[in-house]
Amino acid sequence: MPDTSAPAVEIAGLVMRYGDKVAVDGLSLTVERGSITAVLGPNGAGKTTTLETCEGFRKPQGGRVRVLGLDPVAQRRELLPRIGVMLQSGGAWSGVRAEEMLRHVAKLHADPLPVDMLVERLGLGDCGKTPYRRLSGGQQQRLGLAMAVVGRPELVFVDEPTAGMDPAARRTTWELLQELRTDGVTIVLTTHYLDEAERLADMVHIIDRGTLIASGSPEELTRGSSATVRLVVDRELEPSASDALRASISDWSAAHGVDVQSISFGSRTLEDVFLHLTGRELES
């Protein structure tokens, strides 16, 4: 019997380098079962490298990775049937039809989902006889997601699942991921879309330059703690008014010996969190 008590993913001190460039720099995080976990970060933060290490494509150069309690490289054959993988792009023969490809992947599994249901659910019926290389980016993404879940996996890794999708396809994808979680599937997704992480994830790990800079539920990350004061006003402030406000706050804090570390106008979002932590905008 597989060990069902181990966390879905355990990463401890992972280090990955490409030549001189450090892609992942001592990353540690844990993914609990039955959750949707988003790994959020800008392009080049090390998200895909981390995912590919969990999928057994890359051997950790430092640290330790366990997926469903297994070593993804040494116990790859045992692990692979239990996980679903959606690559960032590609993953089919250039001349294959979408449904044909999905049926093929289904045949590699013992007890696959009904292919017709997935085709309908993800709107892949529209692809018809079009060969894979001529499908739109969004269609290729949806096929990629279907291939990741068709084997009834316990754990699904999805790399930028909605990149390049139109809003309707995005919604469909989000709904499917939520249904998977409801049925007990663990989902790890990478994204650089804040709204995706905020809307879907139970837990968000923000990574930048290969290190974890914050973890928590979207609420925890965006909620003000006792050290943060949010000021909400009922109108837009003129620049001069906000300057006056700043000055008053500054006077008050000087009088009370309080060090104000930042003042932000508008509501705090994951974007603010990222900006606050890194001093940079997330989406370039």
């Binding site: 049937p81 590699l108 599994h109 013992a110 989902l113 009834r152 316990e154 249904e179 409801t182």
Partner: peptide, 9 residues
Amino acid sequence: TFTPAPGAA
């Protein structure tokens, strides 16, 4: 529908 039942053919 999606309750896990993984395995290789």
